[in-house]
Amino acid sequence: MSLEQLPMLQQLMLVLAAMVLFTSFVLLEQARLLAAIHAFAWQGVLVALVTAIVASSSEHLHLFFSAALTLGLKALLIPWMLHRLVRRLELDRHREPLRRPALVIMAALALVIFSYWAVVPVVQQELLFTRNIVAVSLAVVLIGLLMMVIRTQAVAQVLGFMSMENGLFLAAVSATGGMPLVVELGVAFDVLVAMVLFGVFFFQIRESIDSLDVDRMNRLTEHVEEKS
């Protein structure tokens, strides 16, 4: 299959998928929380665009609805909530640069290659076009997980989690034309609830240990032992 045989819209989809991957990298490397939230919002916009394209080129009309939902939720509502959260927690000046950025980026690139390698045998040969996008989606998921591993800031970890969800959604949309609407609504609702819960938890954690650095939560176990 070569690029020349693809219709314009699918080419555009490839470009957008590649840009989703790029936003994942930006998220991973971003030191400032607010900028990271913006990157996440852009990722949401891109995923929504991909969904809209799939919707317009297929008969799954409900995909338009999911596109709108994605846009509203991932590109606007959740970033806005996170934004407010960060401001309230007075973390908007907080910088947390990666300690070994080159190493992290190399790991992420390795993940991209790995996910390509992993996806190739799994997805059927007829789906060449989507297979590549599935590979990118898997890379987005894995990078989101990597971000949760290396970040010590709880808000950044939430961002990693959300971008994992973006990757899954991208895979679902591009490979199978989207999940059934009910499932999608359910997932969207879950994400929203998770977001609200995270918000509440952050305040609680912050009040009890005066920091959102997850590395400092290691000590919780020790406290329990002391009391018992």
Partner: peptide
């Protein structure tokens, strides 16, 4: 270096997306 690493990252992603997304099979 951060600026130039971004450039390098973009260039590498370009290569990877060529390899992954465009060559196909």
């Amino acid at each position: 270096p951060a600026f130039l690493n971004l450039a390098l990252l973009l260039a590498l992603l370009g290569l990877l997306s060529y390899v992954i997304l465009e060559v196909g099979a």
